[in-house]
Simulated scan of single mutants.
Amino acid sequence: MGTVVSIELADDLPPARLTELVGATCAWLHEVDARFSTYKDDSEVCRFRSGALRLEDCSADLRHVLDRCADLWRDTDGYFDAYASGPLDPSGYVKGWSVEVASQRLAAAGSVRHYIGAGGDIRMRGAGPGGRPWRVGVRHPWEADKLAWVLSLTDGAVATSGTYERGAHVWNPVAGRPASGLCSVTVVGPDLAVADAYATAALAMGEPGLSWLAKRVADGYESAAVTDDGRAFTSANLPIAP
Rank of each mutant, 00 (worst) to 15 (best):
R63I: 04
G128D: 05
L151E: 04
A179D: 07
A27T: 15
D77N: 10
C46W: 11
S50T: 13
A224Y: 11
L21V: 03
I122Q: 10
A24N: 05
V101S: 14
R47K: 15
V4L: 00
E100M: 15
D71H: 02
S59P: 02
D219M: 14
V150L: 08
R135N: 10
V185Y: 05
M205C: 05
D228Q: 08
E44C: 12
A84C: 12
M1S: 01
A159C: 03
R63H: 05
P242D: 14
D81M: 08
L53H: 09
H114F: 02
V4Y: 00
W73C: 10
A52F: 07
A16I: 02
S152V: 01
A195G: 09
L53G: 00
A175L: 07
A201H: 06
N237K: 15
D12E: 02
R177Y: 10
F80Q: 04
A214L: 13
R17E: 06
L238D: 02
L62P: 03
L18F: 03
V94H: 13
A159Q: 07
G176P: 02
T38D: 14
I116F: 15
L192N: 07
G162N: 05
R216M: 11
A241M: 06
R68P: 05
A225G: 12
D41W: 13
L238E: 10
E165P: 04
A214C: 11
Y221Q: 14
S37A: 08
G130H: 03
K95M: 10
T234R: 15
N172T: 07
T186C: 12
V22K: 09
L153A: 09
W212H: 03
F48N: 08
L182F: 07
L153N: 05
S111R: 13
G86K: 14
G220D: 07
S103T: 15
L29P: 00
Y164Q: 01
L238V: 02
T154M: 06
P87A: 13
M205I: 01
W212P: 05
T163A: 08
A70G: 05
V45S: 07
E165D: 06
F233L: 11
Y164I: 09
H64Y: 08
T163Y: 11
R63T: 03
G156D: 01
A225F: 08
S6K: 01
G137C: 06
A70H: 03
S235A: 09
R231K: 10
A84Y: 12
A214S: 10
D42Q: 14
E44T: 10
D67G: 10
R105M: 11
L62Q: 07
Y79M: 08
S180K: 02
L106K: 14
A224S: 14
T200H: 04
R113A: 08
L18V: 05
T186F: 00
L106W: 14
R177Q: 09
A214Y: 15
A214W: 15
C58W: 03
L62F: 02
L238C: 13
L21H: 02
P178Y: 04
I122N: 14
K215G: 13
S235L: 13
R74T: 08
P173M: 01
H140D: 03
